[in-house]
Structure formats: structure tokens, C-alpha cells
Amino acid sequence: MTDAVTGAARRAQLAASLTEVRERIAHACTAAGRPPDAAALVAVTKTYPASDVVLLAGLGVTDVGESRDQEAAPKADEARAAGATPRWHFIGQLQRNKAKSVAGYADVVESVDSQRLVTALDRAAAGRPEPIEILIQVSIDEDPTRGGAAGDDLWRISDAVADATALRLGGVMAVAPRDWDPDRAFERLAVLSGQLVERHPAATAISAGMSGDLEAAVRHGATHVRIGTSLLGMRNLLR
């Protein structure tokens, strides 16, 4: 099978999945009494090749998410060389020593959970033409082993981002804990988002919901949903 035939088949597969995902998001928005385009799609392309990013960009996907810098940095370069320039969201746990690399390609960092990381990213992003949009990762259950800001750390981190020169505070991000009902988790996130907006009125973004729980996230105000499996398929089936 030639690369052209393989590429055409993959494009058709992605196009069909993308249609289904977009319809699912639109239906969830409508069911929640929101406009059908109220929640934007972030295609989570971790473990998938740059060729998928290029195909998705050609299908109209504007935002992609990655969680490992060692994979994302070369993938962003390869996609750019092929003419694909989506907004790159870094969504995984970020170590401060990776801040410079991530600042080289990421437009949005969704996993900021410490003031020290804010400082590292602000330094790394100096000189960029546009600031990096920052979403503060919230710990829904305040379990310190899961990562994410808890308690008053959310307000301290948000103030630090707002004071930074090369960053822009966008809002919050969270993953529903496995042992929590998604509605309960995202209702909690919505409350925290509302409190953040009172403090920083422009920080209205809520990144929440994945393939298994996007409807619950949309019901509670998600502005971005991070979809991997439902869009790109199970990775081991593509090998």
C-alpha cells in the first residue's frame, strides 16, 4: 500500500471521527442551553504522528494538545515544516527545566500549578511576539499526589500570572478524579472558575472534559474539551 493511499485512508478515518466528535460537542452544548459552538475542540495528539496533526489541520482543527515535551517539540517542528500551524496546547505535567523548550512552540500551557513554574515560563517566554496563555490546573479533590493547585494556591498563582510580562491568564483546567462523578467534579470547577473571574475578569476559559466525560464538562461551562481517543482512535490499533 502506497503512502498516498495510506494517507488518504487515514484522512477519511479522521474526517469521519471529527464529524462525530463535533456533532457530540454541539449536541452537548445545545442540551446545556448553550450555543452549539460554545465549547472548542482541542485534539489531543499525544502518541500520534505529526502527519495526523497535518491532516487534522487540513480538516479545520485549529487547536492540538500534547503532554510530553520530548514528543511535542519535534512534532511541532515537523508539522510546521508541512505547513500546519495550529495553536499548540501543552496539557501535561511540566517541569521547570522544560519551560524554555515548551515556550518555543506552545501557545497555551494548561498545566500550571505553582508560582515557581509561572516564574520559569515568564522568563522563558520573554521576547515572544505574543504572550503564552496560561490555564491554572486545579486539583478538584485537593489530593497532593495528583498535581494541580489547591486552596489559596489558586489565587496566589493567578495573581503571579497576571503580574507576569510574557504570560496571559486564560482561566482554569482540570481532570475529573477517577473516583468522582464527573458532574460533581466539573460543578466544583465551575465554582472555582467563577471565583477566579471575580478576581481576574478576563480569565474565563475552562478546559475540562475528555472523550468519556465531555458532556458533563459542557453542562458545567467548559469552553474547551480535550479529545483524543474518540477522535484519533486507540493507538495500538494503528500500528
Rank of each mutant, 00 (worst) to 15 (best):
residue 98 K to I: 10
residue 140 I to C: 02
residue 137 Q to K: 01
residue 126 A to C: 09
residue 171 G to C: 10
residue 101 S to Y: 10
residue 164 A to N: 07
residue 199 R to C: 10
residue 153 D to P: 03
residue 170 G to T: 09
residue 199 R to E: 08
residue 109 V to K: 00
residue 189 L to M: 09
residue 127 G to R: 04
residue 94 L to F: 12
residue 94 L to T: 11
residue 123 R to Y: 08
residue 141 D to R: 00
residue 206 I to A: 01
residue 87 R to Y: 07
residue 81 A to W: 05
residue 126 A to S: 14
residue 196 L to M: 06
residue 173 M to H: 09
residue 120 A to N: 06
residue 196 L to E: 08
residue 72 A to K: 11
residue 178 R to C: 07
residue 82 A to M: 13
residue 72 A to F: 15
residue 112 V to P: 06
residue 87 R to M: 11
residue 206 I to R: 00
residue 97 N to M: 14
residue 188 R to T: 13
residue 98 K to Y: 11
residue 177 P to E: 08
residue 99 A to K: 12
residue 77 D to Y: 05
residue 171 G to H: 10
residue 190 A to E: 13
residue 163 D to P: 07
residue 121 L to F: 05
residue 165 T to C: 12
residue 181 D to Q: 01
residue 149 A to I: 04
residue 193 S to C: 03
residue 168 R to L: 15
residue 191 V to Y: 02
residue 148 G to H: 00
residue 170 G to C: 08
residue 120 A to V: 04
residue 82 A to I: 09
residue 150 A to E: 03
residue 203 A to W: 01
residue 150 A to I: 02
residue 127 G to D: 05
residue 203 A to L: 02
residue 181 D to S: 03
residue 95 Q to L: 07
residue 155 W to F: 08
residue 186 F to Y: 03
residue 126 A to D: 11
residue 122 D to E: 08
residue 73 A to S: 14
residue 194 G to N: 11
residue 192 L to P: 05
residue 99 A to H: 12
residue 163 D to Y: 05
residue 183 D to Y: 00
residue 161 V to L: 09
residue 127 G to I: 01
residue 149 A to E: 06
residue 112 V to G: 10
residue 149 A to K: 01
residue 186 F to H: 00
residue 179 D to M: 01
residue 183 D to H: 00
residue 180 W to S: 05
residue 106 A to C: 11
residue 77 D to W: 08
residue 113 D to F: 06
residue 142 E to S: 12
residue 134 I to F: 02
residue 159 D to P: 04
residue 85 T to P: 06
residue 110 E to M: 05
residue 174 A to I: 02
residue 146 R to V: 06
residue 188 R to P: 02
residue 94 L to N: 10
residue 86 P to M: 02
residue 148 G to W: 00
residue 79 A to G: 14
residue 147 G to M: 06
residue 109 V to S: 03
residue 165 T to F: 10
residue 158 S to C: 10
residue 199 R to W: 06
residue 198 E to D: 12
residue 95 Q to P: 08
residue 113 D to E: 13
residue 90 F to T: 03
residue 194 G to A: 13
residue 147 G to K: 02
